[in-house]
C-alpha cells in the first residue's frame, strides 16, 4: 500500500461520512441522487464477492464491509426514512440508470480478466463504478444550486478517483508486472467525468461563493 492509495481510500471514506452527515444532520437528501446511491450499493455488492473466498488484509476486509454497509444504509435511509424521503428530488433524478447497469454488464461479459462468475462481476463493478456518478451529476446540473455538504461529498469522491490514478502511476513504476488496464482505463474515464464538476467547484471556492452549475 502506498500513500496515494491510502489517501484515495480515506477520501472515499470521508465522502461517505460527509454524505451520511448531510442526511442525518439535516434530515434531508435533497441534491443527492438515489439512483447513483443504488448503483454504488450494487458496485460494492458485486465487487466484494471475494470477501469470503480471498483474504488480502484485515484493512481490505474492514473497508469492504464498511463500503457495503454504508452504501446500503444510504439507500435504505433515502427509501424508507419518513422525513428524509420527502426531501428527495425525485423529479430531477430521472436518469435511466438501468441502461448503465445493462451496458456495464454486457461490457463485463465481453471484456474481463477471466470468464468466471466472480471475474465477470468484478469487471461489471469496475465499469459500473465509472458511470455511477452520472445520475448524480445530472441531478446537480438540473437543480443548478449545489448545497455545501453535497458539494463536499462529490468533491471527496472525485479526490478519491484522482488519488487512485496517482496510485496506479506509482505502482506502474515501482512494481514489476503491474498491469491492470481494466481498472486503470475505467478509473480514468470515471475521473474525466468529474472534470466539469471540479471546474465549478474551484471557481466557487476561489470566489468564496455558493456553488452553482450553469443551466
Amino acid at each position: 500500500m502506498n500513500i496515494f492509495r491510502f489517501a484515495g481510500d480515506m477520501t472515499h471514506l470521508i465522502s461517505i461520512l460527509v454524505l451520511l452527515l448531510k442526511i442525518y444532520a439535516t434530515k434531508s437528501c435533497s441534491g443527492i441522487s438515489l439512483k447513483t446511491q443504488e448503483l454504488y450499493a450494487l458496485v460494492f455488492l458485486t465487487r466484494y464477492l471475494d470477501l469470503f473466498t480471498d483474504f488480502i488484509s484485515v484493512y481490505n476486509t474492514i473497508m469492504k464491509l464498511v463500503f457495503i454497509a454504508s452504501s446500503l444504509a444510504v439507500v435504505c435511509c433515502m427509501r424508507m426514512h419518513r422525513v428524509v424521503r420527502r426531501s428527495y428530488d425525485k423529479d430531477l433524478d430521472t436518469f435511466r440508470h438501468y441502461f448503465l447497469i445493462l451496458a456495464s454488464f454486457v461490457l463485463a461479459l465481453l471484456v474481463n480478466e477471466k470468464f468466471t462468475f466472480q471475474e465477470i462481476f468484478w469487471a461489471f463493478s469496475i465499469y459500473l463504478e465509472a458511470l455511477a456518478i452520472l445520475p448524480q451529476l445530472v441531478l446537480l446540473q438540473r437543480s443548478g444550486n449545489v448545497d455545501n455538504l453535497t458539494g463536499q461529498y462529490v468533491f471527496f469522491l472525485g479526490a478519491y478517483r484522482a488519488f487512485y490514478i496517482l496510485n496506479w502511476i506509482y505502482r506502474y513504476f515501482t512494481e514489476q508486472h503491474f498491469s491492470r488496464w481494466i481498472a486503470c482505463v475505467s478509473g480514468l474515464v470515471q475521473t474525466v467525468l468529474y472534470a466539469d464538476f471540479f471546474y465549478y467547484y474551484f471557481i466557487s471556492w476561489k470566489n468564496n461563493a455558493k456553488m452553482q452549475l450553469p443551466a
Binding site: M63, H177, F178
Partner: peptide, 10 residues
C-alpha cells in the same frame, strides 16, 4: 498470485 495482485485494491 496474479489474481490477488489485480484485486488487492478496493
Amino acid at each position: 498470485s496474479n489474481k490477488e495482485e489485480s484485486h488487492d485494491e478496493l
